[in-house]
Simulated assay, not measured.
Amino acid sequence: MRDFWMNRAAFLALIVSVGVAGCATTPPPPRQTAPVMRARPRPIPLSVATPAPLPGRHRNQPPADILNALQALGSKFQGRVGIAVRDVTDGWVVGYNADALLPQQSVSKLWVAIAVMDAVDRGALSLSDVVTVRRSDLTVFHQPIRPLVGANGYRTTIAALLQGAMTRSDNTCNDVLLWKVGGPTAIRRLLAQKGIKGVGFGPGERILQAKTAGLEWKPEWAGGWGFLQARAKMSFEARNKALTRYLAAPYDGASANGITLGLALLQRGELLSNRSTVHLLTLMAASKTGPLRLKSGLRPGWTFAHKTGTGQDLGNLSTGYNDVGLLKAPDGHAYAVAVMIGSTRRPIPARMQFMGNVTRALIRALD
């Protein structure tokens, strides 16, 4: 899962060289430059309960302009896409190819985060719990925590791991949390219990990325470079066969409709306690990933708390390029939005523009 290039310099580098899911294929930053993930993000004002619609705003049906815009944008984009928009208060849903199961990639970190906060609500975990991340816990691709993990491991907290997973899309932070809450089976059980339909969950970061590339994960690949070397030795035909199989039936597949359902339930406070909901939404609002995806179409006064995802590339084919989250109007009215590009050969700037155009079209119709 590849949610990185969080600032302008990183974006410029991305235009030159994009390689694989979750991270660049360039070596990780030197140990001395690695960020120490201990502090919690500064809280920002967030409302969990969706405010009552203003006079004249309430709609049982979506504005026709939204449906027309999404159909036009989705049908013209060169690639397989799924788009869904759901009014959190009024409940209407509109989309394009919104029930297709597409790769989530790092979008799935959202469900891990919900499971973590659910465990906090139940008293099974505390955000202050100390965790030692071992070298054997390292995953693949984007993992800013990696340089901090020495021979004796790295002591951190559940809160810091959650912050790293949600604001920087750190794959190792997320995978450690995943196993703390019981692994993929526990996430699938939570999705079913919470009524989040249309959302699946994969086998965990390492196995997912290995299977997508046509490999079987080996423990000695922890950290990622052994995996990259093994993948580089594969023929194009073998990798293409594996990637085609993945795209036909993604191991982490979800629909845009299903994702917006989960987001709407989160915003309405139906998944977690008020405190846990606010904490998670605060992290999503503080995300450093994908500033030029859906957020690029915002107008002043509108906000977007989100989670991005990016899959593996093969040649000029990119997979699992996603952005999902909660779009809020200046009056506080919230809309769950999911834009998923399952596969495309369009370059990154075209994908970003497409996503920004979705946001611009929504705001024009809703403002």
Rank of each mutant, 00 (worst) to 15 (best):
R122G: 14
A222G: 03
G311I: 12
S126V: 01
Y321D: 09
A230P: 02
G202W: 13
Q229V: 03
A254H: 08
P41G: 06
V112S: 07
G164S: 08
A305D: 09
K109W: 15
R38T: 13
I145K: 01
G342L: 12
A84V: 06
P347K: 10
T167V: 07
L215T: 08
A264Q: 00
P300T: 13
R346T: 04
S276V: 05
A264K: 01
T172P: 12
P51G: 01
L271Y: 09
V324R: 02
G195T: 07
V324W: 12
I83R: 03
T33I: 14
E270C: 04
A186Y: 08
R345N: 07
G22N: 09
V112C: 09
A222V: 08
A186V: 10
R351Y: 11
R122E: 15
P203K: 10
S126F: 04
A124Y: 03
G56H: 04
A34F: 15
V140R: 00
A69C: 06
Y246H: 13
A285V: 02
R135N: 11
G342M: 07
L294Q: 02
N60D: 14
I66H: 07
K295P: 00
H333V: 07
P43V: 15
T359A: 04
W5K: 00
P41D: 11
D331V: 10
S169N: 06
M355C: 00
Q353Y: 14
G342E: 13
Q105G: 00
P43E: 12
G262K: 03
M1T: 09
T308R: 05
R345Q: 09
